[in-house]
Amino acid sequence: MIPLSHFMIISAALFCIGLYAVLSKRSAIMILIGIEFMLNAAILNFVAFSRYDKFAAGGQTFALFAIVLAAAAVAVALAIILNVYGYYKTIDPTQIDQLRD
C-alpha cells in the first residue's frame, strides 16, 4: 500500500512544475501544457483521496468531470491561439501586446 502522503508530494510537485511553466514559458502552447500539469496535479489528489470516500466516490466523479472540462478548455484555447498566429505570426505572449495602458 502506497501511503497517501506520497500522492500529495507528487501532486504538489506537479503543481509547482506547472506553475513555473505558466510563469516562465514564452510560448502559448507551453503555457497550456503548464496549465495541464496543474490540472493533473489536482486530479491526482482527487483520485487518491477518494479512498476515504468510497460510498459517495466524490473524488472519482470530480476527476472525470475535470478531465472532460480540461479537454474542452484546451480545444477552445488552441483554436484561439491558431487565430492569433494568423494575425501575428508568433505565439509568444510577450510580443503580442497591442492592448495595454
Binding site: L32, I35, A77, V84, Y87, P93, I96
Partner: peptide
C-alpha cells in the same frame, strides 16, 4: 484575437 488569447490563458 489578442484579447481572446489573454483571456483564455
Amino acid at each position: 484575437t489578442e484579447a481572446a488569447m489573454k483571456y483564455v490563458l
